[in-house]
Amino acid sequence: MSAREIVVLGSASAVPTRTRNHNGYLLHWDGQGLLFDPGEGTQRQMIHAGLSVHDIDWICLTHFHGDHCLGVPGIVQRMSRDGVAEANAAFPASGALYWERLRHATIFHDTIRIREQPLGGSAVELDTADAPFTLTARRLDHPVEAYGYRLVEPDGITMLPDELAARGVHGLAIRRLREDGQVTAPDGTVVTLGECSVHRPGQRFALIMDTRLCDPVFELADGVDLLVIESTFLDEDAALARDYGHLTAGQAARVAAEAGVRRLVLTHFSERYRAEDEHRFADQAAAVFRGDVVVAHDLDRIPVPPRRRP
């Protein structure tokens, strides 16, 4: 398993089909697991994908339409059954009543502690505690309150082996160099961190579900390595997309192109389209975005692109 990948547990929109389950996306990121929008059937999809509820540290809901949250009861109850001690949950504050109904939908032995972080306002930075990333949410343009999510790894440095070797710095001296910013080499010269390293931008991920085009969409997607975004409609159905608060394939690609995305994942497809229409989503996106385009399928594992080497 890649240390950083998205597992697609469902890729349909309002209505599941024979080949596409309701939404569900599990992001693995350096030992943390973020489950976004678990729709109906997510628990079973996780079994098919070889995943465990112990992989889940966060449940993140974009909004409370059923295809984005009806899997919550099964997931929470399975987490209690399997002995998961605690998890975090983020959801629109305006839907707190729906969260309570889903969280306590049936009788079960409830042992899990869920740290709830309701989202309110136009932008929220969540408390990620000791996680190796920051997580923010931005309000989107949908008929009900909805948020997109952006995960950012802090910037760091990359050590340059050739520069270290040229200056005779090795072993524990490399660690002291990283911690103190300088070290004395065997020949007595002072070696600085700047001489042996380069700036390493943190990797970034964004998930954008039901929305029309709006400024927060572009802000969430800005410079991300992997963008998972709805493309419910084909471009010829742009009027329907606007009326229902969704994006087309071409609009999703425009976001990726203007935001400088590296890998674009299209998902949340309307049941109105047939399997033979699938290539049209890729074609319409590729006409706008020159980067890597992935049309999501259930149980796909899509890695975050490798870092660019300095």
Results as ranks from 00 to 15, higher is better:
243 D>T: 14
249 A>H: 00
255 V>H: 04
253 A>N: 01
257 A>N: 12
269 F>G: 07
274 R>A: 15
285 A>G: 01
227 L>F: 11
267 T>A: 12
254 R>A: 07
229 I>H: 02
251 Q>D: 02
285 A>H: 04
242 R>D: 14
270 S>G: 10
280 R>N: 02
273 Y>K: 05
279 H>R: 13
266 L>N: 09
253 A>R: 03
273 Y>E: 08
257 A>Y: 09
283 D>R: 14
233 F>P: 04
234 L>M: 05
248 T>W: 04
236 E>G: 09
234 L>H: 00
244 Y>M: 14
259 A>M: 04
256 A>K: 06
246 H>N: 11
290 R>A: 11
228 V>H: 01
238 A>V: 05
258 E>K: 11
265 V>Y: 15
242 R>T: 14
235 D>V: 05
296 A>M: 12
229 I>L: 00
289 F>L: 10
240 L>F: 10
285 A>T: 02
280 R>L: 12
278 E>V: 08
285 A>W: 00
242 R>M: 09
270 S>R: 06
294 V>W: 12
229 I>T: 03
248 T>Y: 03
266 L>V: 10
285 A>E: 04
293 V>N: 01
267 T>S: 12
237 D>R: 14
241 A>L: 01
246 H>G: 07
272 R>F: 08
268 H>F: 13
255 V>K: 01
241 A>H: 04
241 A>G: 05
232 T>Q: 05
289 F>P: 01
286 A>Q: 09
245 G>W: 04
264 L>G: 05
254 R>W: 14
281 F>Y: 08
229 I>W: 07
262 R>S: 13
253 A>Y: 03
242 R>C: 11
271 E>A: 12
233 F>C: 08
279 H>D: 14
295 V>E: 02
238 A>R: 00
231 S>N: 01
287 A>S: 15
248 T>G: 04
262 R>T: 10
227 L>Q: 03
266 L>Q: 09
234 L>N: 03
269 F>Y: 15
227 L>M: 11
252 A>S: 13
257 A>V: 08
283 D>K: 12
226 L>C: 07
248 T>E: 04
243 D>A: 15
